[in-house]
Design a protein around this nucleic acid. Structure first.
Length: 209
DNA sequence: AGCCAGGCCAAGC
DNA sequence: GCTTGGCATGGC
């Protein structure tokens, strides 16, 4: 697992996540992006974020001042916009009510619309907590490479497995997740481009042609 | 023109 | 407990 991280790093270089526009407070932008990207391509999230900027909705405070319909309309390109608008408001309300150093994973998970991946994204990229972010890409890649038996592995089981298998370094956690996303978006897609994959010689999933 | 995307929740077995 | 359906747009 550690070797996989270094191989991906050699191949793609540092990703320097989380992607930010600079038009928001960095912590708030991580939180907003984390919600908007739920089961949604980052391209669509970028459109939604541009709309938020145009609509002057670039802070939790402004988001809370805005009615659900206006907010939902702005984030429309990210899909599931009615749910996400409500989730953003619930999240913004909570986060404005606590000090950052007191934010706990269980608090985030108690917010409707915030699940494990979104909570962990906020903790890792927003708050520099030592928590690895598992996503569908992670399960797919590690399954294909034979690190796990099934892509249906339980979220926290895989998270803990990875956390204990790579160096306990915040930047390793951040980069490893970002590199997995990079590799899976470009190569290890649902229909994988095994021909152009530098890992195919050690991949259980390798499909010829 | 389908299929897919950096999930999550509630309901059904 | 595990599976399924709903939520929705836009890119490739």
């Amino acid at each position: 697992m550690e070797k996989l991280f270094y191989d991906l790093l050699d191949k793609y270089g540092y990703q320097n996540w989380w992607p930010l526009t600079g038009k928001f407070d960095p912590f708030e932008e991580v939180c907003i992006g984390a919600v908007l990207t739920q089961n949604t391509s980052w391209k669509n999230v970028e459109k939604a974020i541009e709309n938020l900027i145009k609509a002057n909705l670039t802070s939790f405070e402004r988001i809370l001042q805005t009615d659900d319909k206006t907010l939902a309309n702005a984030i429309r390109p990210s899909g599931f916009y009615n749910q996400k608008a409500k989730t953003l408001k619930r999240l913004a309300k909570f986060l404005l009510s606590v000090e950052k150093e007191n934010i706990k994973r269980e608090d985030l998970l108690s917010i409707k619309g915030i699940g494990k991946e979104t909570a962990d994204t906020i903790l890792l990229y927003g708050l520099n907590k030592m928590i690895f972010v598992v996503d569908a890409y992670t399960k797919r890649l590690l399954h294909r490479l034979g690190f796990i038996d099934s892509p249906k592995i339980e979220y926290d089981t895989l998270r803990i497995l990875i956390e204990s298998a790579v160096p306990r370094d915040i930047n390793v956690y951040k980069e490893f997740h970002a590199l997995i996303v990079k590799h899976c978006k470009e190569v290890c897609k649902k229909n994988p481009d095994c021909k152009k994959c530098f890992l195919s010689n050690r991949c259980y999933n390798y499909t010829y042609g």
